[in-house]
């Protein structure tokens, strides 16, 4: 089943500049593949994605980034919502982030977990799929 939730603030600008900081960037000179490693932080507007490694899939012709594949302790924070997963694929042009691998979305007091979550940054909505579970904290103190 599909669960729709709001995620982050809705007026995220998906064409804002993207800043990636990391310990190092490794570029393979024979096939041109590029990978950031070492507590990588991707920032765009007020969306912040952290991960151990981010692989850059880019189109060299028009020098555009097609996708950022973040793997390893991925944490995505946008507005007051946060989501954790093993992997996140961020397609910058169409402003979608697909998180896979025991996704945990925490919004204020409640938390949802699932196998997969697709976030539309522009509309600020997220669709969770695959064994979606809601964890309501009865004490509600955190």
């Amino acid at each position: 089943q599909d669960t729709r939730v709001a995620f982050g603030n809705s007026k995220a600008d998906t064409s804002a500049p993207v800043e990636v900081t990391a310990a190092s960037l490794d570029v393979n000179q024979s096939d041109g593949s590029a990978e950031f490693t070492g507590d990588v932080l991707v920032v765009q507007g007020d969306m912040r994605l952290t991960a151990n490694r981010v692989f850059v899939v880019y189109d060299r012709g028009q020098s555009r980034i097609a996708r950022l594949e973040a793997t390893g302790d991925v944490v995505l924070v946008s507005g007051q919502d946060a989501a954790e997963a093993e992997r996140a694929d961020y397609s910058i042009d169409d402003g979608t982030i697909v998180m896979t691998g025991n996704v945990l979305l925490s919004q204020g007091a409640s938390a949802l977990s699932s196998d997969r979550m697709t976030i539309e940054l522009a509309t600020g909505t997220a669709r969770m799929a695959g064994r979606v579970k809601t964890i309501l904290n009865s004490d509600g103190d955190n």
Binding site: T14, S15, A16, P17, V18, E19, V20, T21, A22, A23, S24, L25, D26, V27, N28, Q29, F36, Q62, S63, R64, I65, I92, D93
Partner: peptide
């Protein structure tokens, strides 16, 4: 390989990338 290290920062502007 070409390894940029000791702290790397990339700025990518989707509006005018190239």
């Amino acid at each position: 390989h070409m390894l940029f290290t000791k702290g790397v920062k990339l700025v990518y502007d989707p509006r005018n990338p190239g």
